[in-house]
Amino acid sequence: MTETILKIQDLVKQYAGRTVIDHVSLEIKRGMIYGLIGENGAGKSTIMRLIMGLTHYDQGQITLFGQHDELGLQAGRRKIGQSIETPALYPELTARQNMAVQAANAGVGESEVTDLLRQMGLSDTGKKLVKNFSLGMRQRLAIAQTLISHPELLILDEPINGLDPAGIIEIRTIIQRLASEQGITVLISSHILDELSQVATDYGILHHGQLIQELSQAELAEKTRRYVDLVVDDAKQAVVVLDQMAITDYTVSDAHRLQIFAAVSVPELTRQLVAADIAVERIGMTNQKLEDYFMSVTEG
């Protein structure tokens, strides 16, 4: 059975009487890349801060690596690397100096600094101060910093926020490599959902401080697979045609709309519908994205 690295039970956090985290429970097992999805202000960063002990919670329990008492949580946090919100770096220091400070914080040597900077493509930054780095370079340095203590769990909050397409691909590649090559479990948040869907293995949808749905990559694929979006004047009549064509994998959204998930020839289907005197307003292949799914879940 896969080890549970992080378990959150019934977590509640209030700010000035306003509930920002509302009875959230979730579980992250070793090897997962858990994508936390939510609009701005949904509570993603707050959950991450609660896990890291930066913010106090009002109710519930956090268990890290099987420990939930204060000392156990502190020990567990030593196995976690985090970059929450903006990259937390000293702007007047160089990349190497920032790494050295984090190595000292973690109580480890600086022997791996050079290698980590190389892995993140920052080995040639020399005496350049961090304040002169691009956002992408800062994000990569922040990730390099988190790795100095050999974390088993990486918490990355909006790591691709504000990056250009090349920067996004770089960060995505780094995260995938860390997970596959070093076996690091990742908790990642982003509001660029389609990008997140290319990285995560599991998802939690956070809305107004509540975790309204959790699903795996396979479940998401099921829910967001390609389908024929069909809009007709009478869905009931269209269903008869589909039955005649032996198409069974479809759903009826309302009186006019159907989604057909089975492999079907769109020209043939159109011909059959017209032959049955059904007015076709729209027919075409659609690929529901994570973003669409998120909107349908949160707006529904």
Binding site: L54, R77, I80, I84, Q102, Q145
Partner: peptide, 14 residues
């Protein structure tokens, strides 16, 4: 202000 306080605290430093 830079958030660097999170680095030692999140490593279990009291």
């Amino acid at each position: 202000e830079t958030g660097t306080i999170r680095n030692p605290l999140s490593l279990g430093t009291s």
